[in-house]
């Protein structure tokens, strides 16, 4: 049995080929055309796994763009997929924090990898990848550089959760000569605080998996782990967890 999972997110589109093990795992930018991005990610994943499309018995779609592809056998929300993917990578995990491009979620997972409950940010960019992007833009650095800047720096408090207000706040801080490292660390603390608020709504265990593209930022992972007082399991490719979960759900059905 060969299954594919395609996760069309707001920023990146991910595809995984799974046959009991991960055979291929690919990310492409979503861009303006989620349908084309989904097909392209799938094509690359097949190529990478060295298999033909007709060998795939199940294609499960997830993410915001899941409605846009006709090739899906089934569509499942990213909440269910991240839970399943995290459970595969870390069977002992009971909570998943997923921060993607436009939303953040805290999911509580049972011993079988099923969703027990979840909380999601409200209609606002606070505590999402978008927030980080805007902040990196103000500091004129890449997301990777933002992480490096924060290493060892003392965080300056950034009180605004709103991406627009935080932008003006950071511009103010820069004008006053605050160093970029402290601001970067402050930004991570601000996101960590937001996630902490969200995590208060579901029962959070000590076995937490951090998934979604934002988890690529190790410095942010540390800040969130510290503020929640938990050790975080961060997969090698955290942005792939949703697509992986989708593939597994298809594989198991």
């Amino acid at each position: 049995m060969v299954a594919a999972g395609i996760d069309i997110g707001s920023t990146g589109t991910k595809a995984v080929i799974f046959d009991g093990e991960i055979r291929a795992s690919v990310v492409v930018p979503t861009g303006w055309d989620p349908k084309a991005a989904g097909l392209e990610a799938y094509r690359q994943a097949l190529e990478c796994a060295g298999i033909e499309a007709d060998e795939v018995q199940s294609i499960v779609g997830t993410g915001y763009g899941r409605v846009s592809l006709p090739i899906f056998d089934r569509k499942v929300t990213e909440i269910t997929c991240h839970a399943r993917g995290a459970h595969f990578l870390y069977p002992e995990t009971r909570s998943v924090i997923d921060i993607g491009g436009q939303d953040s979620k805290v999911i509580s997972v049972d011993a079988q990898g099923r969703v027990a409950e979840f909380a999601m940010n409200d209609k606002c960019a606070a505590g999402t990848g978008r927030f980080l992007q805007v902040m990196a833009g103000v500091l004129d650095v890449s997301l990777e550089q933002l992480g490096q800047l924060a290493v060892g720096a003392t965080p300056v408090p950034i009180s605004s959760m709103c991406a627009v207000f935080a932008e003006s706040e950071v511009i103010g801080l820069l004008a006053r000569g605050t160093d970029k490292g402290s601001i970067a660390a402050g930004i991570f603390h601000s996101i960590a605080g937001r996630i902490q608020g969200l995590a208060g709504k579901v029962s959070l265990s000590h076995r937490v998996t951090f998934s979604g593209g934002v988890a690529l930022n190790r410095e942010l992972c540390r800040a969130i782990g510290t503020s929640l007082g938990v050790d975080m399991c961060v997969p090698q490719a955290p942005q792939m967890v949703g697509a992986l979960g989708a593939a597994i759900l298809g594989y198991e059905a």
């Binding site: 499942v76 929300t77 990213e78 969703v115 409950e117 979840f118 759900l249």
Partner: peptide, 19 residues
């Protein structure tokens, strides 16, 4: 939609169905 759909999936799996 994401929240409500995930909630319905959660109910489905609790009843022993596939999500």
């Amino acid at each position: 939609k994401v929240r409500i759909e995930a909630f319905l999936e959660l109910i489905g799996t609790r009843r022993g169905g596939r999500p």
